[in-house]
């Protein structure tokens, strides 16, 4: 559906996007991950033709972005906002028509979506009279009302309460069921892990990791230990047979070298700490994320984390 190849964008001093490529198919959810300032939003702006790339090509089903494309994409920007002084329904209809919908069809769809979000009774209220969460729902309606083939959501979960996070998650899975391509950006790894089919992790403008969730996990550590303990665990940073250590406080993730005896490791740890939980797991996306991002940021930190 969407293919971005080798995108580059340089702002006066910063290389915001530096050779990013990714692809989304219909019926697939792509999670665009990365720390703040990684270049996620710039990537999104480029694929939506809001910003021209310095280099690189974006194609939709093999064709370049065109007037037709504008009507088959939906977009929820990171910063939330709508015309404050206008009525809900008017606002939704305006954006729907701008995406090429007929007014009559747009109206029927608007009613349907408002109903789904329990907002129908507010349709003649001004946007500013709604709560923040409800405004966000209206904005979401604006991004999907015209039945787009590609839905792009920049940090869709930010600022939503748990109930609405679940509502949104269900709708995204629904969209996937309907065969839409969904691209969403986030820095919440658990969301990405649960929702995405494919991941693309960007750091400092470069793709540092991509693939399906399973592939990624497979590639990054088969042997990891998740540990909960009490005591001073700092010695774990320099244990033999441990490739990487991430300490969260009273818990830690240890990535082991191949062929390490976990029983022996447990003995060493138990001798110095009070162990509450000792579990053999795949590493979480969170740990992969932190590892990759810190690696990019400061080589020194990596060396300290990595144990030979």
């Amino acid at each position: 559906m969407l293919k971005a190849s080798n995108l580059r964008k340089v702002f006066t001093t910063v290389r915001a996007v530096d050779g990013v490529s990714f692809e989304i198919q219909r019926g697939e959810i792509l999670g665009l991950l990365g720390p703040n300032g990684a270049g996620k939003t710039t990537c999104i702006r480029i694929i939506l033709d809001i910003l021209p790339p310095d280099e690189g090509v974006v194609t939709y089903d093999g064709r370049k972005f065109s007037e037709r494309t504008r009507n088959i994409v939906g977009y929820l920007p990171e910063e939330r906002g709508l015309y404050r002084k206008n009525k809900l329904l008017d606002t939704i209809l305006y954006f729907a028509e701008l995406r090429g919908m007929q007014r009559g069809v747009a109206k029927a769809e608007a009613y349907r979506w408002l109903q789904r979000f329990n907002l129908l009774s507010y349709k003649d209220n001004k946007v500013e009279e709604l709560s923040k969460g409800n405004q966000q729902k209206v904005q979401f309606i604006v991004s999907v009302i015209h039945d787009p083939t590609l839905v792009v959501l920049d940090e869709p979960f930010a600022g939503l309460d748990p109930v609405n996070q679940i509502l949104l998650k269900d709708i995204l899975l629904d969209l996937k069921q309907q065969g839409k391509a969904v691209l969403f950006s986030t820095h919440q790894m658990d969301q990405a892990e649960r929702l995405s089919d494919t991941l693309c992790l960007i750091n400092r403008g470069k793709v540092v990791l991509e693939g399906t969730v399973r592939e990624v996990k497979k590639r990054y550590g088969k042997n990891a230990v998740h540990l909960e303990y009490e005591g001073d665990g700092s010695f774990m940073r320099s244990l033999p047979g441990v490739r990487r250590t991430i300490i969260y406080g009273n818990s830690a993730e240890l990535e082991l070298d191949d062929g390490v005896q976990t029983q022996a490791l447990l003995l060493i740890l138990a001798a110095r700490l009070e162990i509450r939980k000792f579990e053999l797991v795949e590493p979480s996306l969170q740990s992969i994320f932190i590892q990759l991002v810190t690696a990019g940021k400061d080589e020194g930190t990596v060396k300290r984390v990595e144990v030979a």
């Binding site: 920007p77 906002g81 604006v142 991004s143």
Partner: peptide, 17 residues
């Protein structure tokens, strides 16, 4: 100013040139 401050402009620009 309004469209810029709340980023409506991004939605607009992705909808029309």
């Amino acid at each position: 100013i309004e469209e810029k401050s709340n980023r409506i402009v991004e939605v607009l620009i992705s909808s029309c040139s």
